[in-house]
Design a protein around this nucleic acid. Sequence first.
DNA 1: TCTGGGGTCCTAGGACCC
DNA 2: TCTGGGGTCCTAGGACCC
Length: 423
Amino acid sequence: MTVFALVDCNNFYVSCERLFRPELEGRPVVVLSNNDGCIIARSNEAKALGIAMGAPYFQTSALIEREGVEVFSSNYALYGDLSQRVMAILQEMEPEVEIYSIDEAFLRLPKNAAANLTDQALALRHRIKQNVGIPVSIGIGATRTLAKIAGRIAKKNPAHGGVFDLTACSDRDRLLAGVEVGDVWGIGRRLSEKLNREGVFTALDLARHDDDWLRRRLSVTGLRTAMELRGIPCIGLDQAPAPRKSVICSRSFRKPVASLTDLREAVSCYVSTAAEKLREEGLAAANLHVFLRTSPHRPDLPQHAESLLVGLPQPTASTPLLIKAALRGLDRIYRPGYGYQKAGVMLTELTPGDRIQQSLFHRPPREDRAVMAALDLINRRWGRDTLHYASSGQTRPWQMSRERKSPAYTTSWQELPKVRAAE
DNA sequence: TCTGGGGTCCTAGGACCC
DNA sequence: TCTGGGGTCCTAGGACCC
């Protein structure tokens, strides 16, 4: 028999920042989203001050100032690198690992009479803390959904030492009765409102509803969730994730952008990033969607949001071909007289780049793979954007702000932390 | 008055996750 | 003044096929 474990890095982005600023231990810290827009990670001390997840920074800045909360712009180079180090330890210690997100992984563990899963998890936790320095919580359950709940319990109650094993628990129903239905993995805000209206308030209420009702109201995904709560695994471990189906690159602008020239620069930039990711994974895209929108938070201003699908004559991962397609699309959806807040591109219909279906009717566009390979090599070696297409612009006044970003301590020679011995 | 059955594909919209 | 980004899955409805 096997069980699932969820390994979850505590307040991950904050923990990453603290690793190189240990004096921030015990102090309130938050990390902001791109463009310094929202709060997306909070230390326990910041949570205790009542700072909400996803709260707009500008609405919270008075409180943050008053309480002396330390603020960081997001630094994905740092978080990505530390994430890889945590995941590497898991993969080294455990045979069955699914990396679920930047700060979470599921494991499958054999459960037999001899195994003390709690001790095993505590050892894993200790090793991660020692070798990388990131604190994690580990929840163990018969299904992934139950492991998630166990992980919450491990995190919320320090008495457990960061590990909670729900399979060793005799009163599972009592625990499930203490979990709000909206805190169940797979039940979001909309569904929990709907369920509350139907008299379903806890994880236990959901688990006990009959299958027909669940299927009708919540579709198969909701039924699966309920079954998982009953201890019947419906979601396995996915160690080799399916190839991706899309690549998106979009950003909010520093301030509203009205000019087509600026939008064309921004879209060229986003296409370059997306195309690079495509090549990194050996893929090519047959479709490109380009979109732009004004700020939905400003209904007092004129609104315009539109997206357009541009089909490519044949799948490609060539930056210039994709830029051309995107700008053609952008020119069609752009309307003057609006202050746009965001634009982006999405690449879909992805196929392996070395097996491209040719078109019977179009001459294949000239596509210089060697140039793309050289471009990627140079940008990997000397930093992204060292070499870029002129259509992406030079000064980029629209580029997002990240005013409080910490150094890329672990991924840039120029930004290595400096250590001085006391005299 | 009475208008079939079975299937596929595509898209938009809604929901979720981190 | 200032509100993130990237991804997946499911369903309903329309268009089309024979």
